[in-house]
Design a protein around this nucleic acid. Structure first.
Length: 229
DNA sequence: GCGACAG
DNA sequence: ATCTTGTCGC
C-alpha cells in the first residue's frame, strides 16, 4: 500500500500504518442516513497556510435556505503533519475543530472542503470531521482522489456517479455546478447520505462554481490570512 | 510494470 | 495548499 509522495521529506511507513489504523477505528463509527430534519443552519470550512508550518482554518455558518452569512470564525496555529494523499485530515482536522469550537451558532450540517467517503478507505476529511465532531457532514471536492466516472454533460445540473473502480460501489457523485466549468465531487461524510449531500450542494449554488458555504469559507480564509501576516 | 494521488 | 502574468472564451 504505497502512496504518491509530493516533493519533500519521505513519509515514514510506520507513521502511515498507524494513521491507517486510526482511520479504521474512526470508520467503524461512520453512519450514513438522511438528516433528521431540514437544516436551518449550514456550515462551511476551509484551511489555508499563511506559512509552510502554520495553518489557518475558517468556519462559516449560513442560514438555510436563504444562504445569508450569520457567523464566521477562524483559528490559527502550527502544523506538524506533512501533506500525504489519503491522510489530509490528520494535517487539517485538529485546527478545523478548534475553529468549530469558537462558533456561537452551531450548524445542523457541515459542508467540508474535501472528500467524504470518496476516499481509498472511505475516510476523507469530511467523514473524519463528522465522526470527531459527531455532526452531520458531507464533502465537496474540486479534484478527484479515487474512483472512476464519466464526464457529466457541460450544462449546469448534470450528474454522473463516482464509483470504486474495483468494486463498482457508489462512493460519490460528480456534479456540474456551472456551465462549462470543471465538475465538483460530492460524497457523504457522517450522519448524512448521498441524496442529502447532493441536494444540499445544489441548493447552495448561487451562480458560481462553488456552493456558498465553501465559497465563503474560501473567501474568508484568504481575508483572515492577510490579517495574521 | 506503469499510472494516480483531496488540500 | 502555495508560488505567479498573461491570456483564452463567453
Amino acid at each position: 500500500m504505497a502512496y504518491y509522495r509530493p516533493p519533500g521529506p519521505p513519509p515514514d511507513p510506520i507513521l502511515v500504518s498507524q494513521l491507517t489504523a486510526q482511520q479504521q477505528e474512526l470508520r467503524q463509527r461512520l453512519r450514513h442516513e438522511p438528516l433528521p430534519q431540514e437544516p436551518r443552519l449550514i456550515g462551511g470550512c476551509d484551511s489555508s497556510f499563511p506559512t509552510p508550518d502554520t495553518i489557518l482554518s475558517v468556519f462559516v455558518v449560513l442560514e438555510f435556505p436563504s444562504l445569508q452569512l450569520v457567523e464566521k470564525v477562524y483559528n490559527y496555529g502550527p502544523v506538524d503533519m506533512p501533506y500525504v494523499p489519503g491522510f489530509l485530515s490528520f494535517r487539517e482536522a485538529p485546527n478545523v475543530i478548534h475553529a468549530f469550537a469558537k462558533l456561537q451558532h452551531k450548524p445542523d450540517v457541515i459542508m467540508v472542503d474535501g472528500h467524504g467517503i470518496a476516499h481509498p478507505r472511505r475516510m476523507g476529511i469530511a467523514a473524519h470531521l463528522g465522526v470527531l465532531l459527531d455532526m452531520p457532514t458531507f464533502g465537496v471536492a474540486k479534484q478527484k482522489l479515487t474512483g472512476k466516472f464519466t464526464e457529466p454533460a457541460p450544462e449546469k445540473g448534470h450528474i454522473e456517479p463516482l464509483t470504486d473502480a474495483k468494486t463498482g460501489e457508489l462512493i460519490g457523485q460528480v456534479i456540474r455546478s456551472k456551465d462549462k466549468v470543471l465538475p465538483l465531487f460530492v460524497s457523504p461524510g457522517h450522519r448524512c447520505d448521498q441524496a442529502t449531500a447532493t441536494r444540499l450542494t445544489l441548493a447552495c449554488l448561487k451562480g458560481y462554481k462553488l456552493p456558498e458555504p465553501t465559497r465563503l469559507a474560501d473567501h474568508w480564509a484568504e481575508e483572515f490570512k492577510r490579517e495574521v501576516r
